[in-house]
């Protein structure tokens, strides 16, 4: 799966939890969930659970630690997909 395909699947998930903003409109690999998108940290868990469902993967806590940006999330998703 390409980065673009992954972002397209991530976008609706992220939109569920992020307040409306320019940063959300311009969502890209550099976007930071908390600093740029203003997502509440308690909702990061929802994003991770939604990602697990959407991609059919399990994200262990060590991988979850890194998932503060779109690019870090893409890396984790790719790694977990390759292990399937």
């Amino acid at each position: 799966m390409s980065n673009e395909e992954i972002i397209n699947k991530l976008k609706p998930i992220i939109t569920t939890y992020a307040p409306v903003s320019d940063a959300l409109d311009n969502l890209n690999e550099e976007s930071d969930f908390i600093k740029d998108l203003n997502i509440n940290s308690a909702n990061l868990v929802d994003i991770i659970l939604d990602v697990e469902e959407e991609f059919g993967i399990t994200i262990d806590n060590t991988s979850m630690e890194k998932m503060l940006t779109v690019s870090a999330s893409i890396e984790v998703i790719k790694e977990k997909l390759s292990e399937k």
Binding site: N40, A42, N43, V45, D46, I48, L49, E52, N61, M64
Partner: peptide, 11 residues
């Protein structure tokens, strides 16, 4: 937040 969601507390 729905913390009763399956898997939420474990994370």
């Amino acid at each position: 937040s729905n913390w009763r969601r399956k898997g939420y507390l474990d994370k």
